[in-house]
């Protein structure tokens, strides 16, 4: 199982993205982070910590579950049904500049669903997309604004981001076969 990013690289990449955010946004006051569950949520929290360290501002951070916005509830004849988890966005997103955070960008369908969901919460001024890994193979016209690392992959492979908060260690691996 080839290692794409080791723990140290994961940490450095998140720090770098935080610096890019600060560069692009003069003020952090109207920013908000929304991580897509599951793995996007802890990345968003880490970014929030980094942004506080750099800019001294607490950026409100939420977690978004996009299960109810998926387009495949009835499409798969086999396989498990995605588990629905809570969406926690305890701030108004109206007129904020939202930083949408996910771990891996692939077909773009998750982001499409997340955009639909966010719009139901209000009317943000802008939405920017942060991903830790972009593995290509887009099926929708979606482009990230911040990319940790671009990893060329085959369709048959899958990319997995593991984080301390969830899996006990930080790493990104790539393996053969469909998502497991």
């Amino acid at each position: 199982m080839p290692l794409v990013m080791a723990a140290e690289q994961v940490a450095r990449t998140i720090t770098r993205i935080a610096h890019e955010v600060v560069e692009r946004h003069r003020t952090l006051g109207d920013l908000a982070l929304v991580g897509i569950r599951t793995t996007g949520a802890p990345i968003a929290r880490r970014l929030s910590t980094e942004l506080h360290g750099i800019g001294g501002v607490r950026v409100p951070t939420g977690a978004l579950d996009i299960t109810l916005y998926r387009d495949d509830l009835m499409r798969h004849q086999v396989g498990p049904q995605p588990i629905l988890r809570r969406t926690d966005i305890d701030f108004s997103i109206d007129d904020r500049r939202i930083l949408l955070v996910d771990d891996v960008l692939y077909t773009g369908r998750t982001i499409r669903a997340a955009l639909d969901a966010l719009i139901d919460f209000g009317r943000p001024r802008t939405i920017e997309l942060i991903v830790l890994v972009d593995r290509g193979h887009r099926e929708l016209p979606i482009k990230p604004d911040y990319v940790g690392r671009t990893v060329p992959t085959a369709v048959g492979e899958s990319v997995q981001v593991r984080l301390r908060e969830v899996d006990g260690r930080d790493e990104v691996v790539i393996h053969d076969g469909p998502d497991r």
Binding site: I66, H76, D102, D103, Y106, T107, Q160
Partner: peptide, 12 residues
């Protein structure tokens, strides 16, 4: 899953 519709590796 069928690999066809291919969801992002966002943990889903």
């Amino acid at each position: 899953l069928d690999g066809g519709s291919g969801w992002d590796r966002a943990g889903e």
